[in-house]
Amino acid sequence: MKFKKYFLLALMIFSVPAFAQETAYKTIQNIAYYPENTEGATEYRNKQCRLDVYYPEGKKDVPVIVWFHGGGLTGGVKELPQALKEKGYCVVGVGYRLSPKVKAAVCIEDATAAIAWTFKNIAAYQGDPNNIFVSGHSAGGYLALMSVMDKSRLAKYDIDANEVAGLIPFSGHTITHFTIRAERGIPGEQPIIDAFAPLYFVRNDAPPTLLITGDRELEMLGRYEENAYFYRMMKVAGQEKIKQYEMQGYGHNMTHPAFPLLLNFVAEQKR
């Protein structure tokens, strides 16, 4: 009985610090990432171009995951995926303008502006600007790739795209996006690789990259194969820090089982 009492007492004593050290998280919503009253400001931009920041209170310099939602560049809303919460990271969920209200290429401009905002402001939300990872699903994966692979985009904000700690697109186009092709009257079955294709910008100095797609037999048209081609051409260009993962048995909506891969990649690559 004495042993049992001492054991329970010890359990209570050592349990208190554990509860006391539990991390509290905070969410700040609808932060504008374009300065107000600047060139190009419209009511639609002011409404759409906002982001949410989820971060752990009481910590500093935690890795950051920027997340772009999917929706074909024509739909969807900003989101903070539940699978990324309470993992010790700062998460930035980005909204952006959508076609047909704007040309789909504007979505890339918005995504780049949101990443630039993160570099310049995330320290105020406990995030580490030296550990910013960029990710997203489908159209969001495409935006992640385009914003970083085309170095000229972040350069407009005086940011070297190679300062991004890692790229993790989920089932993103690596050819020119089908909505951009549709705006030109090009059918979805006709692939194009031009300045709106991540494949156009393959280079050996890009940030570490993890390409994740669904099963090649279950994915959207050619999505696995174009990611495989991107992977191969990056390797040919001399990029060694790139991996590809095919989610066997999962189709295009493979985010849930893919999130652990994203989290593992961030843990491995953080600086």
Rank of each mutant, 00 (worst) to 15 (best):
Y200V: 06
I186Q: 02
Q190L: 09
I115G: 01
S147Q: 02
D128R: 06
I108L: 12
Y200C: 01
R153F: 03
G140Y: 08
A104N: 03
S152Q: 13
L98N: 09
K151L: 01
A113Q: 12
S135H: 05
L98V: 10
E163V: 04
N130T: 06
V164I: 15
N121Y: 08
G72T: 07
C107G: 12
P198A: 10
H173W: 15
A123K: 15
P100S: 12
F196H: 12
A114Y: 05
L143C: 05
T179E: 14
S152M: 01
H177D: 13
V148W: 00
G93Q: 13
P187W: 02
F119K: 08
V106C: 09
H69E: 11
N162C: 11
I168G: 01
L143N: 06
I175P: 07
Y142E: 07
S152I: 00
Y142C: 01
D160H: 05
G76R: 11
G75I: 02
K101Q: 14
T179F: 00
T112K: 09
L73S: 06
G172E: 09
L80N: 01
G166S: 08
L73Y: 02
V77F: 12
K156Y: 00
F133C: 05
I193E: 15
M146Q: 14
G140T: 09
A114M: 08
N162E: 15
P191I: 11
T174D: 06
S171I: 02
K87H: 12
V102L: 07
G188V: 09
N131W: 03
S135L: 02
S152T: 12
A139Q: 11
P81Y: 09
I159E: 00
A105H: 03
F170G: 00
E163S: 14
F196M: 15
A161R: 04
A111N: 02
E163M: 11
A83S: 12
V148R: 00
Q126D: 09
Y142G: 03
D150V: 08
S138D: 13
P100W: 11
P187G: 04
A83I: 02
H177M: 10
Q126V: 00
L154H: 07
V106K: 14
P198E: 07
Y96E: 10
D158M: 04
D158Q: 14
P191N: 13
Y142L: 05
L80S: 02
H69S: 11
P100E: 09
G88W: 10
Y142N: 04
R181T: 07
I122M: 08
C90V: 15
I115F: 02
A195C: 01
E163R: 15
L167D: 06
I193H: 05
L73V: 06
V102E: 14
N130S: 13
G76S: 08
E79P: 00
F201S: 03
P100Q: 10
N130F: 01
A197W: 04
G70P: 12
A195Y: 09
K87T: 14
R184Q: 15
A104V: 10
N121S: 03
T179P: 01
I193K: 11
I186T: 08
A139F: 10
A111T: 01
F119Q: 05
F170K: 00
V164M: 04
G75H: 00
P129T: 10
G136N: 01
I193S: 14
H137D: 11
P81A: 01
P129I: 07
F133G: 05
K101C: 07
E79C: 07
E86R: 13
